[in-house]
């Protein structure tokens, strides 16, 4: 995009390039959160409800993985998906799918760790009640996840925040290809390197606004839901 117009002009003029970037950013990060939730919520719930040797160690490692360096995750996924890597035949490197995979790896531990904490707290409260109702293990997990759903929204938001903000992983596995794998954050990195700081800042403000908007929507949904279900 031309550098001598500000990001606000781009937004106001409905620049299709910018919208494509925003759209891809959201698609990648939201897909990653979705897949990470499908992995992280059951895994976190299972970890909350089972007792086994080494469980404490797993929890410590999981909590630590909340802070995985994106660039390291990006590099690991890069090596996996590279044509010279074990999954090279999938041909996914430098595609949005690769970016979804990398962000899923980043986000899943966050969702799993926060889910574990939430479910464990609720389990303390529900434990006897469910035992008295003779609830089996599978149904127990389902009940706790369902009843904790509004708290779990917070876990999903934390995951989304992480995904939307990171650049290290997706720039490595996506390649920042214009019109194909360029997102808000990689575009910001690029504009910064081109010295177009006003445009980079403008894009940053657009990104932050979108993140705030999504958080506000989720917050509203959570409040409405709590009003409905207590």
């Amino acid at each position: 995009m031309p550098g001598d117009v500000s990001a606000f002009d781009l937004v106001l003029s409905g620049d299709p390039g910018l919208y494509a970037i925003v759209r891809l950013s959201l698609l990648v990060s939201l897909s990653a959160v979705l897949f990470a939730a499908l992995i992280g919520v059951p895994a976190g719930a299972l970890l909350a409800l089972t007792r086994f040797r080494g469980r404490e160690a797993v929890i410590v490692v999981l909590n630590a993985m909340m802070g995985l360096p994106p660039v390291v995750v990006g590099l690991a996924i890069f090596l996996l998906l590279s044509r010279s890597g074990p999954l090279g035949s999938w041909g996914l490197l430098f595609t949005p799918q690769a970016m979804v995979i990398a962000q899923t790896v980043l986000v899943a531990p966050i969702i799993a760790a926060l889910t574990r904490q939430t479910i464990e707290d609720l389990w303390v409260e529900y434990r006897e009640e469910l035992a008295a109702m003779n609830i089996g293990p599978a149904r127990r997990v389902a009940t706790l996840v369902w009843d904790a759903r509004f708290s779990l929204v917070t876990a999903l938001l934390a995951g989304f925040g992480r995904a939307a903000a990171e650049v290290g992983a997706i720039i490595v596995v996506g390649g920042n290809i214009e019109g194909f794998t360029r997102t808000m954050t990689t575009a910001i990195a690029l504009e910064t390197s081109k010295g177009d700081l006003p445009l980079a800042i403008g894009l940053g403000i657009v990104l932050i606004s979108i993140v705030i908007l999504i958080n506000a929507l989720a917050w509203g949904a959570r409040r409405a839901g709590e009003r409905y279900a207590g």
Partner: peptide, 24 residues
């Protein structure tokens, strides 16, 4: 069946709580 001294309320409506127990 047992009623605990401080029963936990499932995060559902009153009807939802009873429905859950019926299903169980």
């Amino acid at each position: 069946a047992i009623l605990f001294q401080r029963p936990a309320m499932l995060r559902r409506s009153a009807a939802g709580n009873v429905r859950y127990a019926l299903a169980a």
